[in-house]
Design a protein around this nucleic acid. Structure first.
Lengths: 247, 247
DNA sequence: CGACCTTTTGAACGTATTCAACCGATGTGG
DNA sequence: CCACATCGGTTGAATACGTTCAAAAGGTCG
């Protein structure tokens, strides 16, 4: 143990927080940055926040001043309508960015709630804009991230607007599966962090319908499911369900 | 008539295309720019494209290299699923930006089709990124525009995920009305540029349902509608329909 | 262990869809 | 210029899908 390490406790914390040593850097904001550029990004990301299950990172109406990168855990974002119905607009896992809805009005327009004990990196937005003016690769990648959020939303619109219940749930499971693979987890076996009600809200279905479709998929040998534990048995057939009428 | 004007026919064309003289500049990309900054934006926007009714500005799969600002006319964007169903993901009118879905993959992910003879300003995206690195006000506003597109999409998700047919159409009409007002048109009387089928696709309903709800609203004295001509009689009551269960 | 939350499953119901016929508007070619 | 074909819109009746209401079982957490 060297004296220098003991004398600089902050550098340990620094290392712990740094993008350059983060396992998620291939999926997150630093994608495409050189080592030097990543160091500059590190300079603005040195605050992390934790949220226990059920707590929120931000709520609709709060002033916006930062984006949040999911470091660990799982989040949902949702909006509440006047009469109390709420709509889950997305689920977010490691490496994904929360809060881009707030840029336009400088107020958050939805709630970001942890579905399990989680941690996020705080990215002060003003400083991110400053840096992305100096680092084209960062600017470019940030634009791509926002654009992909739009494309993702279009996918959900397609799902909600023109798919039947079974297609919706199949699309949801396939999407989750792909995101887990990208993070080094099994594509075919995972724990759902969200309730049937939250899945239903996201998919425009009631929780009973979600439960029924899960049971149906299980009866048909597509998946095996008990509570939050899902194992996908036949991914190709599940994929085929998406975008194909029952015939 | 001075000699200089006759000698520089291009400057006339230039003037015609310039953001600084465009009636839509308060709604479009130049929002918040100083005169000088706007001139620099003008430097990159000097190509316009026209699309006759039914023609597209871009199609899914084509390489992305520009955004398009609607100068006149009306567009829809839509995605086609594997089995041929298509989903309208948005309608775009004067001052609104098309094509942001293409940034993420450098390919367009949907079709942008003119619903009437229309004109767009071509905004080369690489040059827009260059300029927005030099002009913070432009950078900031562009980020806001993208963010608002995300928020708009969330609104549609809410609509598709948790509203009944009547709420959806009411929300759609109120939204159109507001966008017409912002452009100096009547909030209560307008022509729909899209068919019942396109409205239905956007709202996740069949065209027959859209037609029925139009008729119901008319019977209830909320609106008067014949074909594409709509007059909103009771905007407050229409607004109240949105976000409130039938009770 | 007990209270509460989540999930499952059944039966009745309701909303939007499907299928079908008809009408009106628009546009094209003889 | 009109006849006819086509497209878009309206309306009705039967159907289907997902919802609602209800009950009970299975988990979870203090």
């Amino acid at each position: 143990m060297t004296g220098s390490m003991a004398a600089q406790p902050l550098s340990l914390e620094r290392l712990r927080t740094a993008c350059s040593t983060c396992g998620l850097k291939e999926l997150c904001l630093p994608v495409g940055l050189s080592g030097q550029e990543m160091d500059r990004l590190d300079d603005l990301i040195h605050v992390r926040r934790t949220a226990k299950k059920g707590q929120s990172i931000y709520r609709a109406g709060e002033p916006f001043d930062a984006l949040y990168a999911v470091r660990s855990g799982f989040f949902k974002s949702s909006i509440l309508s006047e009469d109390g119905r709420d709509q889950v607009t997305g689920f977010y896992m490691g490496g994904e960015l929360l809060g881009m809805d707030g840029i336009g009005t400088e107020q958050h327009t939805c709630d970001a709630v942890a579905l399990e004990d989680s941690e996020v990196c705080v990215i002060p937005f003003g400083r991110l804009e400053d840096l992305s003016r100096q680092v084209p690769a960062l600017q470019s990648h940030f634009h791509k991230v926002m654009s992909r959020e739009i494309v993702r939303d279009h996918g959900v619109m397609m799902l909600l607007g023109s798919m039947r219940a079974e297609e919706r749930l199949a699309a949801f499971l396939v999407n989750l599966s792909q995101r887990f693979v990208a993070r080094g987890y099994s594509p075919s076996e995972f724990y759902l962090r969200m309730t049937r009600e939250e899945i239903g809200s996201y998919l425009g279905l009631k929780l009973e319908t979600v439960s029924r479709v899960f049971s149906k998929f299980q009866d048909e040998g597509l998946i095996s499911v008990q509570q939050k534990h899902v194992r996908i048995i036949d991914i190709p057939r599940l994929k085929h369900l998406v975008g194909h009428r029952p015939c």
